[in-house]
Amino acid sequence: MTSAMLKALAHPLRRRITKVLARREFARAADVAADLDEPANSVSFHLRVLADAGLIAEAPERARDRRDRVWTRVSGAYSLGTPEHPVEDEALGGVLMRTVVDDHHELVRRVAAWAPEYVTGRATDVHALFTQRTVRLTPAEFEAMMTKVEDVMRAAVDAHDSDDPDGRSWDIDTVAADDTI
């Protein structure tokens, strides 16, 4: 992830915008503004910042005419860094990692607030899942497993009918840690 990407995602509204684009897949500034209850001109500005950083791109094939701007997320642009491709700005990377952790904690809080309704039978629709499993794997086996998990999620997204009225947006956090942490 480049410094421009890190700076773009450091802003909380921009992270919220990327989540809307992930849910909708394609959206206009007005759609995003309505979803977030934010002014359209502010959302337009932040969409341009995200685009300049390479995190989102226009989808002209979805536009109604030449003036219509439709946006989508750039696949693969959200990897923070790896040993082979380290983050350019360590301080910004740390800030972004903390915000991702905060987002994860908020998701866990939402699920925990909902879970008692489900486990007591007061709510019958599945909206979340808590699961925990301890496995013993080598680092290579763990990496292969996570690749398969990502492949399964990608295949499910690709197979989804975006016109299905029963479609819902699911936030999925996969948490894994080995026994050294």
Rank of each mutant, 00 (worst) to 15 (best):
M153N: 10
D103G: 15
D163Y: 11
G81K: 00
A113N: 12
P165F: 13
L92K: 01
A123V: 10
A144T: 11
R62E: 10
D68Y: 03
S162N: 11
R133N: 09
R67S: 10
T99F: 10
D103I: 08
P116G: 05
L92W: 14
H104N: 14
E106R: 14
P86E: 02
R133F: 05
A113Q: 14
D102W: 08
M153Q: 11
T120I: 04
R122D: 14
V126M: 05
Q132L: 05
A140T: 10
L137S: 01
L137D: 04
D89F: 02
V111E: 10
R98V: 03
D161T: 01
R62Y: 07
P60T: 04
V111G: 08
S162R: 15
K148F: 06
R110E: 09
D89C: 04
A115P: 02
R133T: 13
P165R: 15
T99P: 03
V95G: 07
D65F: 00
V149N: 07
S75R: 13
A156M: 08
L137A: 05
W114E: 13
D103S: 15
W71N: 03
L55P: 06
A156P: 00
P165S: 15
E143Y: 03
P60R: 04
R69H: 09
G81P: 00
A128F: 04
R62W: 09
H127M: 09
V157C: 05
G121P: 04
D103V: 07
R110Y: 02
K148R: 15
E84Q: 14
A128I: 01
P83C: 09
T124C: 07
E90F: 11
L129F: 03
M97P: 00
V111T: 12
V87M: 00
A112Q: 07
R62V: 01
V101D: 10
P86L: 06
F130P: 02
E106V: 08
T99I: 02
T99H: 14
V87T: 06
W71D: 02
E141N: 05
R66Q: 06
D151G: 05
S162K: 14
H104V: 12
H104L: 13
E143T: 13
G76N: 08
V100I: 07
V95I: 13
E61C: 01
E58L: 15
M97T: 07
D68L: 02
G54D: 04
R136N: 05
H105S: 11
P86I: 07
P116L: 08
V101Q: 15
A59C: 02
K148N: 09
V74M: 12
A63N: 01
R73V: 09
D52S: 05
E117V: 02
D103L: 10
